[in-house]
């Protein structure tokens, strides 16, 4: 488990921090979000798939947990990084991991995070003309939102 962290630390230096091991899951904190793609390329040598992108809203910043796993190893590695900018944007991982495509669309849909250079950044769960991003802390479910259908009703 430790060797993955050492590998990351060899390239990124003190920009990564060790969060320790929990079972087979190894957590790494990435201090600078611009280095995410570099870190993902290093992880790609050992891991096969990005199987989860978990986002949490600690306003005003977002916490992003990229969970990588492998087909033939039991190990899991988690890269945690924070978005604190006001534009809420981060680089996409679609060029490194193909499964990042839909995960990032979901994060865009529900949290409004912009993924730079994403090939197909559309909504994936909600209707295309939905107003707002519902899993943000500042989203309030009003009657207007509840009764919104987006339909041109004839009857």
């Amino acid at each position: 488990m430790k060797e993955y962290f050492e590998k990351l630390k060899g390239v990124l230096g003190n920009k990564v921090k060790d969060f320790g091991v929990d079972g087979t899951e190894y957590s790494v904190l990435l201090v600078d979000k611009k280095l995410l793609k570099t870190a993902a390329e290093i992880i790609r040598q050992d891991f096969d798939v990005l199987f989860m992108l978990a986002v949490a809203d600690y306003k005003p910043k977002f916490e992003l947990n990229y969970v990588f796993s492998s087909y033939d190893k039991p190990d899991t590695i988690v890269i945690r990084t924070y978005i604190t900018d006001r534009d809420y944007s981060i680089d996409t991982l679609t060029e490194v991991f193909d499964s990042a495509n839909w995960e990032e669309r979901e994060a865009y849909d529900l949290f409004g995070i912009k993924f730079n250079k994403h090939p197909d950044l559309r909504r994936i769960l909600l209707p295309e003309d939905w107003p707002g991003h519902p899993l943000r802390k500042d989203f309030v479910v009003t009657d207007e939102v509840r009764n919104w259908t987006g339909l041109d009703l004839k009857f």
Partner: peptide, 15 residues
């Protein structure tokens, strides 16, 4: 009934 993403009763959209 309190969800943002469901139709609360389909009599709102069809007879």
């Amino acid at each position: 009934h309190d969800s943002y993403n469901t139709i609360h009763g389909i009599d709102k959209i069809m007879p």
